[in-house]
């Protein structure tokens, strides 16, 4: 029983990390219908920006909540700038091109970031400074919960709520939804679609940056290729929940995290990565729009 609950806790905490990345994926897809494969690598950049900031300011020596918030802010800002640049340089010139070109460009950007990262940061794994620690751990007998994981879980729920609010309650959100419905129509209505798309990229990338820092804190080993598998898993999570749907991304990520945790805990650790892709295939066959997705019919 205790094992079951522990696996449940582990799964939720893993899932909430996937959720942070999946949110950005789903948002960009929602508005551009583009799978931004470089998203996982922006998350990697977030972790490295976080690491260099902490090192430069020597925050590892004095762990505090302020240090964490500062590093989060820097990483999010850095990644937002990165997201802006990626969209401006790589995607915007292809706005009118066939969508497959955009997709291939996204793969190219992803590989560029991964290998440029190895060149700039060095390919060996780096230690992420422990800029925030909570000494007292929640434990109920055998059941151990890392408070940081509770924090990450909380943060991903909060971010999801904020995103929902932005998308459904604000002017820019309405513009985003309009642009996602139809770029041309939206721009006819006087919505600056290019600016809206830039904003979406920056928002999604900032989330990925936050994800990078939080993951660095919990799993303090970061490397330039850390984003590739994470990106793919988050992509699966987003598709599972219904890509383009913010709640769906979080739910899909939690399902994936739990499924992995139980699969590994009950004896099939080798199938961990296969599981994510098996889920992807299954969902594409059974319900291609995902759990929360709605079917949009094509109007000619």
């Amino acid at each position: 029983m205790i094992e079951f609950v522990q696996l449940l806790v582990n799964g939720l905490s893993l899932g909430s990390i996937y959720a942070l990345i999946a949110l950005g994926y789903t948002m960009v897809f929602g508005i551009l219908q583009l799978i931004n494969f470089a998203h996982g690598d922006v998350y990697m950049l977030g972790a490295f920006i976080g690491m260099y900031t902490s090192r430069a300011l020597n925050l590892g020596e004095h762990p505090s909540l302020g240090a964490l918030l500062l590093v989060l802010a820097v990483a999010m800002a850095g990644c937002a700038a990165m997201g802006f640049l990626i969209e401006r340089i790589a995607y915007r010139p292809l706005r009118k091109a066939p969508r497959i070109n955009l997709l291939i460009t996204a793969v190219g950007v992803s590989l560029f970031l991964e290998f440029a990262g190895q060149l700039v940061f060095g390919a060996d794994p780096k230690f992420f400074p422990q800029i925030f620690s909570i000494e007292s751990d929640f434990s109920f007998g055998e059941l151990k919960i890392n408070p940081l994981q509770v924090l990450v879980f909380g943060i991903s729920i909060v971010l999801m709520t904020i995103l929902q609010t932005i998308i459904y309650k604000t002017r820019i959100g309405r513009a985003m939804r309009a642009a996602s419905f139809s770029h041309d129509l939206a721009s006819l209505m006087g919505i600056p679609t290019d600016r809206v798309i830039s904003f979406t990229f920056m928002l999604g990338s900032a989330l990925a940056g936050a994800g990078g820092v939080l993951v660095g804190l919990i799993y303090p080993k970061i490397e330039p290729l850390m984003g590739s598998m994470m990106g793919l898993k988050a992509f699966v999570a987003a598709v599972l929940g219904g890509i383009g749907n913010v709640t769906g991304a979080v739910v899909g990520a939690l399902i994936l995290g739990l499924a992995e945790s139980f699969l590994v805990g009950y004896g099939y650790p080798t199938f961990r990565d296969a599981l994510a892709f098996a889920l992807l295939i299954l969902i594409l066959i059974l319900k291609p729009t995902g759990l929360f997705g709605t079917k949009r019919t094509e109007k000619v």
Binding site: I2, E3, Q6, L7, N10, G11, L14, E142, V215, Y219, K221, M226, M229, E260, S261, F262, L263, V264, G265, Y266, G267, P269, T270, R272, D273
Partner: peptide, 20 residues
């Protein structure tokens, strides 16, 4: 006897099974 794959970063599920 539990296993993982190089590149994994979460081992808690295996370790939970081991702890039991």
């Amino acid at each position: 006897d539990q296993s993982f794959s190089a590149g994994d970063m979460d081992f808690k599920s295996q370790l939970t099974a081991i702890r039991a």
